[in-house]
Structures are given as C-alpha cells and as structure tokens.
Design a protein around this nucleic acid. Structure first.
Lengths: 251, 251
DNA sequence: CTGCCGGCTTCCACCATACGGAAAAAGAAA
DNA sequence: TTTCTTTTTCCGTATGGTGGAAGCCGGCAG
C-alpha cells in the first residue's frame, strides 16, 4: 500500500526547516522536547536533525542543552536581506514619491522590528531610518503592524519578554492596552503611530502578509505637521497597493 | 555489505544546506547546473532539494530559472544576529574598556561588511557605528580583515562586483593593490585602516576564524590622534584574546 | 551520599523515502 | 524550422532515515 506523499518536498529537509522555525519562534532557546511538542515528531528524529543543524552552525547548543539560532544564519540572512531590499526598492520609491514621505519596510527580528529597506521622502525635513536599524515593537507603526499579524497569545508572549519602554507621553506601555490596539489594527487594516516613539513623528503602517512567509510591515512616516488625517487617509490605499506588489515580489 | 557512513548527519539536510551556501556564495543567483558543478550532486537530486527550499521561501526562483536566497532567511538571520550580538557584547565591552576605544564585530554580508555588535569607547569623542550598518569592504578595517580570510580568487570576484569607491586620499581602489594588502594582513594577522573610509579615523581589525563557520571580524577604532602606533601595538594581542574568546562562544 | 526520576541520547532492524540513471520536455541558439 | 543545452519528470532500487525501546546522564529529594 503506497503511502500518499504528494507533499512536494524532501521530508527530512522539511522537518529540519520546521525545527529552525520552531527555534526561531521560541526566541531565546528551545529544548528538544519543546520541539517535539511543537512539531509532533518523535524525539530521536528531532535529535538527529538538530545534531545535523548544529554541526553546520545553523543551530547552537546552549549549556543547558537547549538550542538557539546559530551564527551561520547571520550571513545568509544578511545576503537575503540585501537582495530583498534591492527588489523592494522600486516599490518603496514609488510609495514615497506618491505620498511625499519616507517609506520603510521592516521584518520581525526577535522582539524588535528591523528595517530592511527604505526610500526617503521628498521634503528636506523628513524622517530618516537607516537600513538595519532595530526598533521596539510596542511604540512604532511597523512594530504594531507586525504584532497584529500574530495571535494575541503570541503577541503577549513577545511583549512579556521585551521592555515596554516609555518614549513619549503617547507611548502605550500596558500589555492589555496594546492588545486592544492590535485588535483595532486588525479591524482597520493599518496601524498608526501617533508620536509614540518620537514626538512629532506620525506614521501609518500596514502588515504585509504572504501566506507561509514570515510577517513584514510597510510604513510611511513623516513630521506630524505634514502627516494630516487627509494624508494618512490617502496613505492607506497606497500602502495596500504597495503591499500587494510586495507580496508578488516575495512569492 | 553495510556502507561506511559515520558522516554524522542527515544526508539530505546536509545537502540542502550545502545548496543554500552555494547559492549564497554565488551572490546574485545560481542555476541548477551551476549548483551541480559546485557540489558534484546529480541534477535530479538538486532539483528536488531546491524545490523544497523554494516552496519554503529559503530560496527564490528568478524568472531566468536561476535561484537566489529567499526572504524566509531574513527573519532567521535577524534573530540569529540579535542573539549573536547579545553573546558577543561582554567580550566587546572588555575590549573597549581595556583599550579605551570603540570595539566592533562584523560579518560578511554579500559584498559589504555588516556590524552585528558594538561597544562604545570611553572617550566622549569616539567612533560610533550603529549595529546593522553595512560598510564597503575595500576601505574598512573589518572589511579588509574579512576579505583576508578568503582566497585571492574569491576576494577578487567579490571586489569585481562591488564599487571601489574613493572616500579619502588613502582609500585603496586598485584591485591588485588590495590583494597585496590582503597578503600583508594574512602575514601580520591583523588589518589596519589608515583613514581609508573617513579622514582621521584609524582602525585595527582582526579576522575571527572559526573552522566551518562563516568569517567574522573584530575591530577597534578611534580618532587617529589617540590611535598611536603604541596603542595599535597593544591592540593586536588584545584583539587576539578577544578573537579566541569569540571563537569559544561561537562554537 | 544514595536512589529516584524526567529528559536526552544511543542502538538497531525495518521499510519508507530519497536517490539518480534515463528519457521526455522546455527553452535557447542557429 | 532543426539542433543543442538545460531543466524537469519518471520510476525501480537500495540507501538512508525512521522511531520504538533501552541505556544514560544530570538534577533533585530524601
């Protein structure tokens, strides 16, 4: 009785990648049995795969026998990052040109958001974010947009282990208030940052969700004096279109 | 007749990782047959593995049927990056405290060097490099140190596809001169940046080579007025020790 | 110190799964 | 068009991966 296996892929590779992603999701570190719980695979199988990934530097074994992401992933990620930024550049450029304000693309990096691409706005006074910069999730547009793509429980666990630092009077530092905010974002389709990180900076951000791919977020930000409600209103559909374009490029 | 196979690892996973690394090394993109040439694997095998990696987002299929690193690697790399920075922090801190100048750790990211960790120096006037920043290879201490870990042919191919921009009067922009410089670095064990990127900034950098792991580089940099020959002399052994410590932490 | 216990690691026989030669298909070049 | 190259599909084989069971180790309680 031949087994149904139109799973399109090499089983052991799929499983190895699953493990990488489980460890990534765990953040700090993940024991073998936690991986078993997350994937449903038997322990010896996981052990063997993890060993392979570890000797190659894709995972790292901690003294307490848990595992975290290994440093061999750093240059790979950096390379992928550069390519992605390259491909995304024209889309960001168009967005920034259309609205006149800086456009940014960010991914989730542990418990921070990392900017991977950027197109500066047209005015001489503008927000400027360096590619590679990491910012907190709770007080930025892209951060909140990224969180909104996760489930409440997962968002809560990430917020738990990050410091909800106060930056301005509008910074939201209560976990429950943040979860409410995330619900609002999901309903509305985009996030707003009302000077929560830096006074006078307003930002509209939208999650870029591509099924089976890790979350990203796109944002447009500028000085509050120019980021009128009218502009943010126009930003939403522009962001939508850019998200769709990105989704195509990422597939 | 049981086959000798103490290869310590799951074959298909090993091969999949090999392919990722081949594609990474290729930079822009890599065809299936190029991968076959690089790995010695038969075409159908590569095709199957590549397909698995592609459907998972670890590779990306270009319109011309070549493959490049996929965006699923971005968040993984970012996560690994954050963890690495965390672990390296105390070592950099000690180095910076000992010499008084800023200490930096960088990895090779395509044809740039990316800073992954940093500890500021003790003086108020100091060099400051943001984590995540990417700098050219030909005119920085860490860049040259990273290049020196590669073979001449590989270094030449990377230099070929990057722009050897002139920043100051001392910037080396000739490929052959750079290769000479690399030979000197290998002999001496460390690289010097004599204001090649920015006037008045001097930098001592050393490659951190851990066998079977991608290259990294450690550097100490500061204003030339304080970075005397005496200080750079003391920096070399301090860097050596820090490299050893890093190697331990990375293993 | 000793004995217990839960999670990690090793072993090994089975067979599902990945392998790769061969041939077909899809492009690229002529 | 034809011809050549590169990619993709097919499928029988046996290699390599699997996972139950047993051993090991280190942590904890007594």
């Amino acid at each position: 009785m031949p087994v149904e296996q139109r799973a399109a892929g090499v089983q052991s590779v799929q499983r190895a990648l699953d493990l990488l992603e489980v460890v990534e999701a765990a953040g700090g570190g993940c024991s073998i049995s936690a991986m078993a719980a997350a994937t449903g695979l038997p322990l010896p199988t996981i052990h063997r795969l993890v060993q392979t990934l570890t000797t190659r530097g894709y995972l790292r074994r901690l003294p307490d026998r848990r595992y975290c992401l290994g440093s061999r992933l750093v240059p790979l990620g950096a390379g992928a990052n550069a390519l992605l930024g390259e491909r995304a550049a024209p889309i960001l450029r168009e967005l920034a040109d259309g609205l006149g304000e800086s456009a940014n693309l960010a991914v989730l990096a542990g418990e921070r958001a990392e900017y991977v691409a950027q197109a500066p706005g047209l005015h001489s006074m503008r927000t400027f974010t360096e590619v590679g910069r990491r910012v907190p999730l709770h007080c930025t547009g892209v951060g909140k947009a990224l969180l909104s793509t996760l489930g409440d429980d997962e968002a809560r666990s990430i917020l738990k282990r990050s410091t909800l630092s106060t930056h301005t009077a509008t910074t939201i530092v209560e976990v429950d208030a943040l979860l409410d905010e995330l619900a609002g974002i999901r309903a509305r389709g985009y996030a707003l940052d009302e000077g929560e990180m830096e006074v006078g900076v307003r930002c509209v951000a939208m999650p870029v969700s591509v099924p089976g791919m890790s979350p990203m977020a796109l944002s447009v930000s500028g000085p509050a004096v120019r980021m009128s409600d009218d502009l943010t209103g126009r930003a939403a559909p522009a962001l939508s279109r850019a998200c769709a374009a990105l989704a195509t490029i990422l597939t």
